[in-house]
Structures are given as C-alpha cells and as structure tokens.
Design a protein around this nucleic acid. Structure first.
Length: 224
DNA sequence: TATATGATTGCCT
DNA sequence: GGCAATCATATAG
C-alpha cells in the first residue's frame, strides 16, 4: 500500500494540559491530530484521527457497565472504571466483544472522563497494519472502527495506563490547519444507554470514518 | 461458580 | 439488511 504524508513541520506530542479538560472539549479537538506508535520491533505507525466519542462523568452510557448511579446521575468507580478517575493523557484500554478499544483519559484527576478513538486514516506503516488486519480488503478498512484501530496500531491490554504525551505511544499535532476539518456530531455507536447524547464527533464526509449506525437512529428504526 | 451483557467485527443472504 | 463469535466484568446465588 502506498504511504501518504503531509508536508510542513513535524508533529510534536500534545501536552498534558490538552487532556485536562472536559471529554466533550477534547473529543472534537482530537480530530485531525496524529496517533503515533513507535514500536521497538516494527515500523513507526501513524494515523490521523477522524472519529472520536466522548464519555463523561455524568454519562448514562455507563449503566451498561453497572457503573452509573441513577440516584446521583454520576459515574461510579468500579474495578473497570477506577482508572477513568486517574491522571489525564493516559491510555485507557479495555476489551469488549473480544476486541481491544483505546481511550484517552480526560478531565482533572478525580473526575472520570475519556475519549474513545474510533477511526483513523492510516498514514505510515500501512503494510505492517495490513499484516495484523487480515480481513481488511482496502486501506480504508485498516482502522475505520475502534477495534480495527487497535489491531492496526498493535495495541492491546499492555498499553493500558501508558502516558500518551510521550513516545513510544502518543498523540501529536503538526500545527497545520487541515483543509478538510469540517466537524459534525451524532449519537454514539453501539450503546443501549445515553443514546440521546450527541457525543460522537467525526469529519464530515471523510472516507475513513467507521461504517456504524448511531444508536439513536438504530433505536428509531427498531420501533417502526 | 454460573450467567448475562456489551463503547465490535466479519461473514452471511 | 441480519446474525453469531468472543471474553472480561458485574451481579446473583
């Protein structure tokens, strides 16, 4: 597969401060940023983030994890959610339906929050990504979904807790203003709770966005 | 210990 | 469009 690159300055890691904000602010701001994985035993993997979802401290979506207290309307710390209360800018990696998903912890310490990285446009290390993504027929399928993204970027539970503000795994900004950065929102994908919240952010019309259907649209279809 | 569930994916018609 | 594989977590018993 052919590698693409963007001209201009080299990308530098996003600092801690970028992530010490509400997940709702961080999620759209991550669009257009780079995800970089410098591996010891393989080529550098780079992608441009085109789709994210925010998960907040008062998010009913956590009811699906039995980690939401309806009385207070707040996320409850459990074994699974404890690290969401930890320092921002760290990786929060968990498994669902047998697939690893990568999130970035956000909000001040003590306040739970994170941003799910759902899709990226592959920019470097495409052949290496394709080796792990056996089912991918085109370069578009390499990382156009949260489980595909972790597979392409060679990430699993070992990455949980990693500091994403420095190598080997980090998020970066090249300082350039992307010319296709038209951000739109929707309901999140694959949820049974909190489906009314417009917490999904993606680049309008970008071909590397995941093919999933927003949860509110699905629910409406079922009802008819 | 046993069971139900889900922030998914890929293959099927 | 539908559907089943897949596995860690939470909860019940």
């Amino acid at each position: 597969m052919r590698e693409r690159h963007r001209g201009g300055r080299s990308a530098s890691p996003l600092g801690r401060g970028f992530f010490v904000r509400s997940a709702l602010d961080v999620a759209p701001d991550l669009l257009g940023m780079y995800l970089v994985h410098d591996r010891a035993d393989g080529p550098r993997l780079v992608g441009r983030i085109v789709e994210t979802e925010a998960y907040t401290h008062d998010d009913p979506a956590f009811r699906g994890w039995h980690a939401f207290d309806p009385a207070s309307g707040l996320v409850r710390p459990t074994r699974r959610t404890a690290d969401l209360f930890g320092p921002s800018g760290t990786a929060y990696v968990y498994k669902v339906y047998g697939y690893w998903l990568l999130n970035v912890v956000t909000d001040p310490e003590g306040t739970p929050g994170c941003v799910l990285l759902r899709a990226a446009e592959p920019l470097a290390g495409l052949d290496d990504m394709a080796r792990r993504r056996e089912a991918a027929r085109t370069e578009r399928d390499l990382a156009n979904g949260p489980g595909k993204l972790t597979q392409a970027f060679a990430l699993d539970g070992d990455a949980h807790g990693a500091d994403l503000t420095q190598p080997p795994l980090y998020l970066a900004d090249d300082g350039a203003t992307p010319d296709d950065l038209s951000i739109v929102t929707s309901s999140r994908i694959g949820l049974s709770f909190g489906i009314d919240r417009p917490y999904r952010f993606f680049m309008d019309g970008n071909r590397y966005v995941s093919p999933g259907t927003p949860s509110d649209v699905k629910a409406r279809r079922r009802r008819r």
